[in-house]
Design a protein around this nucleic acid. Structure first.
Lengths: 213, 213
DNA sequence: GAAATAATGGATCGTTCGTTCAAGAATTTG
DNA sequence: CAAATTCTTGAACGAACGATCCATTATTTC
């Protein structure tokens, strides 16, 4: 009955996401998006309604990427090592994408904060990440790997704080050594004191011992 | 020989700063700034050259505020309690100003990152904050209040990370309890183990004991 | 008071913004 | 094939952007 779409919707969303991520919602003009996607403006408007609709679609896509990135944390034995790995991977993705920070954080810091739908999406995504963190931390506590007195929810919030604070650090003159040291410090704070060695030795380098005296 | 300026330069700068802080560089239009300052566009251009010039002036002013906020940390006996207080004060300032995050961080995450002068200003300000943190931490280590194995510079970077990560947390659905817990966790990580009681008891509530077993 | 200088107010510049119009091209269903 | 429907294309819309012009007003120095 109707003509079929010629462009690859996935590719268009991915490229729109990249443009929004790099330049922000207001910073990415329709012309930027036209260039990034290869589509004409009218095609974008046919498919997404308006700029905000395209942004929401891109944001949903981003959210899917976030969910995907959390899957290693869903593994049965996931613990502090996997959390540390998550941070490292996240930072390297930012670097690879040529982007200063998480799109959700940039959005939360931006001026489209007044939009309730966008705000809800940002909040929900943040909560999803912290929930995944929390589950892993709870398991680590149960396993004796993480401190027994940790509240998993709060510890997850703490980890979330560090995760996104690292972007602020590295873009205001912080060196990569500073970033690494912050990660080490963070997991040093979460790890259980070395009374009894934890069952699975962490495979990454972020296991400097605290309490050396 | 010439007419004297009628407007209060300090006030204009302060209001411009506020506008830029809330809406960002690109988000704050000349008309916004005209409304915020009460000046006409031409007066702004006479005084600051262009929008970027006004932003640089506002940024310099912000930097002065940052320096000023660091003075309590310069007190002879300043330690972890003062650092904790600094974080709390900073967050309450953000709240009072109706702003999501530090202007420097918002700028660093924004799109005017390519401007070398702005970038340099952001980097320098971040370094100044971390240097102040570092000095206090070094003193705390020497006093036995903070962990002996801390590298003050790295610990300062860690604190900086948390400080700005907290904005990300609280604007992506994190509760104030989450924020408080993150602060507690952070200073718990820095504080020396309770082998010997620290000389000056910290006056704030953020001194939950670690190592309870 | 006269000359010089700067602030003011209002209009307006060219550009870019997000968005839409109108017409042709393409593809599916009957 | 024909009708219906959607996509594509290029041009254009009004509004807002940063920035500037210009005549007027006010103030300071000589």
């Amino acid at each position: 009955m109707a003509r079929t779409r010629e462009f690859d919707m996935d590719l268009v969303l991915e490229r729109s996401l990249s443009a929004f991520w790099m330049r922000g919602f207001e910073g990415a003009s329709i012309r930027d998006l036209v260039e990034a996607t290869g589509l004409k403006a009218q095609s974008l408007y046919n498919a997404f309604g308006d700029k905000r609709g395209l942004f929401l679609a891109a944001l949903a896509r981003y959210r899917a990427h976030v969910s995907e990135s959390l899957t290693p944390l869903g593994a049965p034995g996931a613990g502090l090592a996997e959390l540390s790995q998550y941070l490292e991977t996240f930072l390297s993705v930012l670097r690879a994408q040529g982007v200063s920070a998480c799109l959700l954080v940039k959005t939360a810091f931006g001026e489209q904060t007044s939009d309730p739908e966008i705000r809800a999406l940002v909040t929900a995504s943040g909560a999803a990440v912290r929930a995944a963190f929390s589950a892993v931390i709870a398991a680590s506590v149960a396993r004796g790997e993480a401190r027994a007195d940790l509240d998993p929810k709060h510890a997850a919030a703490y980890l979330f704080t560090v995760l996104h604070g690292l972007s602020a650090l590295s873009h205001t003159g912080g060196t990569s050594a500073d970033v690494q040291a912050s990660i080490v410090e963070t997991f040093g704070a979460l790890r259980a004191p070395c009374k009894r060695p934890s069952k699975r030795p962490s495979k990454r380098s972020s296991n400097r011992q605290r309490r050396t005296t």
